[in-house]
Design a protein around this nucleic acid. Structure first.
Length: 732
DNA sequence: GCGGTCATTGGA
DNA sequence: CCAATGACCGCA
């Protein structure tokens, strides 16, 4: 805050938010002759170091001793102050997540480089008429390359001429070349709204028109609920085009970096240019450019991961959240926010439309749509006209494979047909490794993780037993550690490696490929292999959940789910929802382009509502059943799932607090603890000591509830962390 | 969040 | 005995 209207010329002071976990802004002196406004980005001393900060709106804390005040040490004149909407957003997110506001600000000020002008690049240019004393082949190649008279960067020139940089240095030394300063990179080209207008189906057109209308309605939220392959992207591209026509910036959020590459290509086909990218793998330099471009308005469209929500847009006018149901939009360290929900909040604060898109919307978005809070646009058919895959259950109780095999006869027959037709098959099993459990046939010893209670999963390629929970791993022993028997260990149940073994046995002539995140070679290899599958270079693919997203596999016509029940029995209250979403996405791969796709679900519970809804392709049936099931379990139809994590210095008291909460919460009708109290109080490793899972209805202000709880505690509780996984619609 | 401070642990 | 490691505090 600026107090320069003070007639006594008292020293001016300002509130400054610092990017650390303190409860609120700190007060600093403003050096004479300097003026700051709320939002100004500054550098201030904090303890023994200096940190970035932003001038905040709060009145300076009157309790602070004025003698203690330090001065703002630097004002970033070149950077535009953070605008009022962004400051309100930061405060809102901090309050909602119970995180320190400074930690939210930190997400905005992530690129320190961006606050200064980009330094000019040194280039070299040929001096007119100059020639080296002694011509060498390398030197003449350099001079030939420079015939055009343009300036080059040193490394670019060395590369183009095929010489080492020292050759260039030599020519500089002899004053044949001179150093010039190259102008900074020009602003990126603007997307062209009408570069390549798509042909939309009537259903797509209707949805697109609906989205365009929403621009005149302030903070409207729309849900595009379209089956896999229905062309949701083309629909929201029309909303992107509308925002661009209105000279507003656009943010498209994707759950995963792996999806950006093909998105970039599609965007370029539609708008003629690449949008700016923002995610953790973007280099610091490009990150700084995008940050500056977003703030100046040079960048019109950003495609990014959740953190792109915290960029300082000049005139943001649309956020699209693609695959809105995806849990990768949730961050659970530091500031635990859901980018989907905070996108809705940001749209609300700045009065612009937000579009959520998914083939399998989250329960909360679906309920919001049903209650009229969101507009819902349904795309029931594939845009290509291809039919949705025909799905069939294989009842493993009667039609299962023989002992020690995992692929049922009926699925094998379909695989043979697909192989004969030159079509691809995907066998989906969301379990890495060879076998999820190893036991000793002599004494019955089961290999368990020494840190958690999970079974150790055998990874035969690596020859190790691995805990998928905490990462613990050990070599597969020669003999049983319990009874000492040799050659007595047996693998129980299938993982992708084991299914691949069976496929190799049944289809020796087929080209098979395992797609699993833990195979040696890392992300590069995975990317290559995805490409191989895309181009038809594999006949049978055995994959974990990473095959569910992105990537079109044009030749894929058959999907076999090895264990459709996996995930349904989980203690997670969202287990059914997650399984439905995953299996709908996976089976949706079949015949996505060509039609004629088929899918098989191997299951022991063909009557489970999730399986039945998948089989009938009746998505409404799933949502109705799931909402009813939650009500029957005494949970709010959809609520706010809170993990209350208690840690801190006084461990014994933290434990007491956790136990007291578990005892009291069931009597508080507004909060439902999930599972038996003992199970709900589960120790987690690392910094957190206790994690309680509670489901609270949307009407309850969980923050207020917890604050009241803390006030009645006999001693102050430190280190209480609350992770809230909630839908903030109600509070807007 | 991070750097400084102070206490605890562990190797002689 | 001290060095290394870890918990905790305060920052304006």
């Amino acid at each position: 805050m600026l107090f320069d209207d003070d007639p006594l010329q008292r020293e001016t002071i300002a509130s400054v938010m610092v990017p650390v976990a303190v409860p609120g802004p700190y007060t600093y002196k403003v050096p004479p002759g300097v003026s700051v406004v709320p939002g100004t980005i500054v550098r201030v001393p904090l303890g023994p170091r200096e940190v970035l900060g932003a001038v905040w709106d709060n009145e300076p804390d009157p309790a602070i001793n004025p003698k203690k005040l330090k001065s703002i040490s630097h004002v970033y004149e070149g950077a535009r102050p953070l605008d009022k909407d962004l400051r309100r957003f930061i405060d809102w997110v901090a309050n909602w997540t119970l995180a320190a506001p400074g930690m939210v600000l930190r997400m905005v000020l992530r690129s320190e480089e961006a606050l200064e002008e980009e330094p000019p690049v040194a280039g070299v240019r040929k001096i007119e008429g100059a020639a080296p004393e002694r011509m060498t082949p390398a030197r003449s190649r350099v001079l030939e390359t420079m015939e055009d008279g343009f300036a080059w960067t040193k490394s670019g020139l060395a590369h183009a001429a095929g010489v080492s940089p020292s050759v260039i240095d030599g020519l500089l030394h002899q004053e044949v070349l001179e150093v010039v300063s190259l102008p900074a990179a020009p602003p990126p080209p603007k997307p062209q709204v009408d570069f390549c207008k798509p042909d939309l189906t009537p259903a797509q057109r209707e949805a697109a028109d609906g989205l365009i209308e929403s621009f005149d309605k302030g903070a409207a939220v729309s849900l595009i609920d379209g089956v896999t392959g229905s062309g949701k992207t083309e629909v929201y591209f029309e909303a992107v085009a509308e925002a661009l026509r209105r000279d507003r910036q656009v943010l498209v959020l994707l759950p995963e970096i792996a999806l950006t590459e093909q998105f970039l290509r599609r965007f370029e086909q539609r708008f003629g240019v690449y949008p700016a990218e923002w995610h953790s793998e973007v280099s610091p330099k490009n990150r700084a450019r995008t940050w500056r471009g977003v703030a100046s308005g040079d960048v019109r469209v950003v495609i990014g991961a959740r953190s792109a929500l915290f960029l300082p847009y000049l005139e943001l006018g649309l956020i699209v959240v693609d695959e809105e149901h995806d849990s990768a939009f949730k961050q659970d360290d530091r500031v635990p926010y859901s980018a989907r929900d905070m996108a809705v909040v940001r749209g609300h604060i700045s009065r612009f439309p937000v579009v959520l898109a998914s083939a399998t919307p989250s329960i909360e978005s679906r309920v919001n749509a049903d209650m009229g809070r969101y507009r819902r646009f349904v795309l029931p058919e594939r845009a290509s006209g291809a039919a949705l895959p025909e799905l069939k259950a294989i009842d493993m109780r009667h039609q299962g494979p023989e002992r020690g095999r995992w692929i049922a006869p009926e699925l094998l027959v379909a695989m043979k047909e697909a192989f004969a037709d030159g079509a691809q098959t995907l066998l989906f099993l969301n379990r890495r490794g060879y076998a999820p459990l190893t036991l000793c046939r002599t004494c019955g010893h089961r290999f368990q993780c020494p840190h958690c209670s999970a079974w150790l999963v055998e990874h035969r390629f690596q020859g190790r037993l691995v805990c998928h929970h905490c990462g613990h791993n050990e070599k597969v022993p020669e003999s049983c550690p319990s009874c000492g028997s040799v050659d007595s260990l047996i693998a129980c149940g299938p993982g992708v490696e084991r299914v691949a073994e069976e496929v190799a046995d049944r289809f020796p002539e087929a080209r098979t490929l395992i797609l699993s995140s833990d195979l040696p070679g890392g992300p590069d290899r995975l990317r290559r292999e995805m490409k191989i599958v895309e181009e038809g270079g594999a006949d049978i693919v055995i994959g974990t959940q990473l095959v569910a997203k992105g990537h079109n596999f044009p030749k894929m016509r058959l999907v076999g789910v090895i264990d459709a029940d996996l995930g349904l029995a989980h203690g997670d209250p969202r287990a059914a929802e997650k399984t439905f979403q995953l299996l709908a996405q996976v089976t949706g791969r079949a015949g996505r382009v060509t039609g004629g796709g088929k899918g098989f679900l191997q299951t022991y519970s063909p009557d489970h509502p999730v399986i039945k809804a998948l089989l009938s392709s009746d998505r409404d049936a799933f949502y109705e059943a799931e909402i009813a099931a939650r009500q029957a379990a005494g949970l709010p139809p959809f609520g706010r799932l809170a993990a209350i994590v208690v840690s801190g210095p006084d461990k014994r008291f933290a434990e007491d607090f956790a136990r007291a909460f578990v005892r009291a919460a069931p009597r508080e009708p507004a909060i439902t603890l999930l599972g038996p109290a003992e199970a709900a109080l589960a120790m987690v490793r690392g910094r957190y000591r206790y994690r309680l899972l509670a489901m609270a209805p949307r009407q309850l202000d969980l923050q207020a509830y917890l604050r009241a709880w803390l006030e009645q505690a006999p001693r102050p509780v430190k280190g209480l962390r609350v992770q809230v996984d909630i839908d903030p619609q109600h509070f807007l």
